[in-house]
Design a protein around this nucleic acid. Structure first.
Lengths: 202, 202
DNA sequence: CATGCTTGGATAGTGGCACTCCCCTACCGG
DNA sequence: CCGGTAGGGGAGTGCCACTATCCAAGCATG
């Protein structure tokens, strides 16, 4: 209850239609929005700030769906930016670029003037870190992962296309964020299974 | 610098070998550990507490690799537990079970006395949330995702098997945690690409 | 119409977490 | 011998997501 007021203050929920000076009315749509907000924050682990920006992107009128979605994804948390003072970052960028080359999505079709997109930054930062720790993450190592994510993105878009065009952006955002725990949970279950299969003897 | 002291206090790093009463010596191994800790926390977004537990599991002697890995994965954050007072949770459990049935890993080969594993809980909570919001997440919808994660787990274990047995648990943990941003970054890049391909007209 | 409960809005406070600062002692290099 | 630095303990800081308190304006009830 107090939390709802807090979200209202933070601009995550629209204020209700004013019925009198001090009374407002909330409808089914408000409730939906509230559930979405709580889901993004609690299940999708979005910080309140990011959630606000992401949801704001959904209400930008007059943008193409691609642009709306881009804006929303842009607002998702993406961890520390690559540290370009670190020479390891340069080499990580080369690895990332080689990977994108290999799988044939060099910078995702965005106009080439775009600076590093947040997902690309995530990738570079993670590769830098893995390399510094001596863990394998060459373009060849990463390629099967990229292929798997390519298939997942196809599935994602298939789900999105079940919806009416004016709902698709919200659905895409929700699925991007809320499927993350699903994917990570499934990955860990699959790892346990595969590890058991290989090291059963232990 | 102050951060290192903090990690020492928190038990994330082993104290250095005492050289005098007030002077300790840190070697290459300590440095490695420090880098690993920072990577898990900053890139892998682990809370300090979880990082401690995860790392502690690596030093449990006398357990099989599978058990060590299980303990470590158990300590990873897994979001809110399913709310069993909510009837939607029961239906989500059925969906999850059906999914695991379909892909043929019913509870990951763990002994059946195990309570809900954290990854299973993540799955159930996420399915509950998605269902409540009216987003698609039937077992049929989720199956391709599970298949993709199955392939990823195979790649994960392939990477792990490059290492000597006594390093494998640490590698597995590090790859589980540190590949998450890689996977999510790749997924978002692939989504952008696929969305562009489909909605180019916009 | 009086009364008491609820609602909405503003403001201030709480608890957790990840550091960060300060200070003191012991040491080491010059 | 002495200035600067590492180690260690404890207290403090800033941020974040809430949460509690107040107050005035309804509405509901007798």
């Amino acid at each position: 209850m107090a939390t709802i007021k807090y979200y209202l203050r933070e601009g995550l929920l629209q204020p209700g239609r004013r019925i009198t000076a001090t009374l407002a009315e909330y409808d089914e749509e408000h409730l939906r929005r509230l559930r979405l907000v709580r889901a993004l924050i609690q299940v999708g682990r979005l910080p309140v700030n990011s959630a606000r920006e992401v949801l704001a992107a959904l209400h930008e009128e007059g943008l193409s769906r691609n642009r709306q979605l881009g804006t929303a994804v842009w607002a998702l948390p993406h961890g520390p930016a690559p540290d370009d003072t670190d020479p390891a970052t340069a080499s990580a960028r080369r690895t990332a670029d080689e990977l994108l080359e290999r799988v044939g999505w060099s910078h995702g079709g965005e106009p080439p003037d775009a600076p590093d997109s947040p997902p690309y930054q995530m990738l570079v930062t993670a590769i830098t870190t893995l390399t510094r720790l001596g863990y394998p993450c060459s373009a060849a190592d990463l390629e099967p992962y990229a292929r798997a994510m390519e298939r997942i993105a196809v599935d994602d878009l298939n789900l999105v296309e079940r919806y009416a065009p004016d709902e698709q952006v919200e659905v895409a955002v929700a699925l991007t964020v809320l499927y993350e725990p699903v994917l990570m949970g499934l990955r860990r279950l699959a790892q346990a299974r595969e590890s058991h299969r290989r090291f059963e003897a232990d």
